[in-house]
Computed example of a mutant assay.
Amino acid sequence: MSADKMTVGFKNIYYALMQDDVRGGATTYGTPKRFAGAMQATLNQNPSSQTVYVDDVPVATVTSVGVLEMELGVDNITKEAAAELFAYRIDDNGVLLEATRGKSPYIALGFESESIDGGKLMNWIYKGKLTVPSQEFQTKGESVEIKSQSVTAQFVNRLSDGERKVSVHSNDEGINAEVILDWFEKVYVPVLTGGTTPTV
């Protein structure tokens, strides 16, 4: 990444519930929804490598990419999103019941980051699960320290096509402007020579 495309911001976190993911078939998602206000995020690809030795001499190196881990700091997760993502419930009085009932769903997670050149780096990570968020509480002292919510997630490759993450920079050459405009309207569908991957 060139210096003028270095990121200087983080915003617009969306999630979409994964509806189906069939090996060699299709992956489908629901309509993306706003998740929470973005504060910070860290992505770790967890790469690993191993060197092969023959006759006491290194002759080859094998590399692999592990599970994609994400640490996400947000301002406040709505109770509606919490109910969907963590298998919570909301009672008749609008109170969030934080006992997990059932399995949390796989989701796609999209977000945006501004860059030095005024462009936007857009991302979708295709298949992962979020952990129940951690929270910190602290009494007010002479100075007020604002506490955020922290969520971790693990993402794996889709069964349908093996894809895991896609990204695009709005100022790159040859980018269809509609791709950027519609980025959060639905989970992005990769378009490859000879046709479109079986994903909607």
Rank of each mutant, 00 (worst) to 15 (best):
G9R: 11
F10N: 05
K11L: 15
K11A: 14
Y14T: 04
Y14E: 04
Y15M: 05
Y15C: 02
Y15Q: 13
L17K: 11
M18F: 10
Q19V: 15
D20H: 11
D21L: 04
R23K: 12
G24V: 03
G25R: 12
G25Q: 10
A26K: 15
A26P: 01
T27C: 12
T28N: 10
Y29Q: 03
Y29R: 00
T31L: 11
T31K: 04
P32V: 12
F35D: 07
F35Q: 10
M39P: 00
M39F: 10
Q40I: 11
Q40C: 14
L43Q: 02
N44P: 01
N46F: 07
P47R: 04
S48R: 09
S49K: 09
Q50Y: 06
V54G: 02
V54I: 12
V54S: 02
V54W: 00
D55I: 03
D55R: 04
P58C: 04
P58H: 07
A60I: 08
T61P: 00
T63A: 10
G66K: 09
G66T: 09
K79H: 14
A82C: 03
A83K: 10
E84S: 13
F86V: 12
Y88R: 08
R89P: 00
D91E: 01
N93G: 11
N93K: 13
G94A: 06
G94L: 05
A99H: 08
T100P: 04
Y106K: 09
I107A: 02
E112D: 05
S113T: 13
S113Q: 12
S113Y: 07
E114G: 15
I116S: 12
D117S: 06
D117V: 05
G119F: 03
L121N: 11
N123I: 03
W124Y: 06
I125A: 11
I125E: 06
K127V: 03
T131I: 09
V132Q: 07
P133I: 12
S134C: 06
E136V: 00
F137Q: 13
F137R: 09
Q138F: 01
Q138C: 02
T139W: 09
K140D: 13
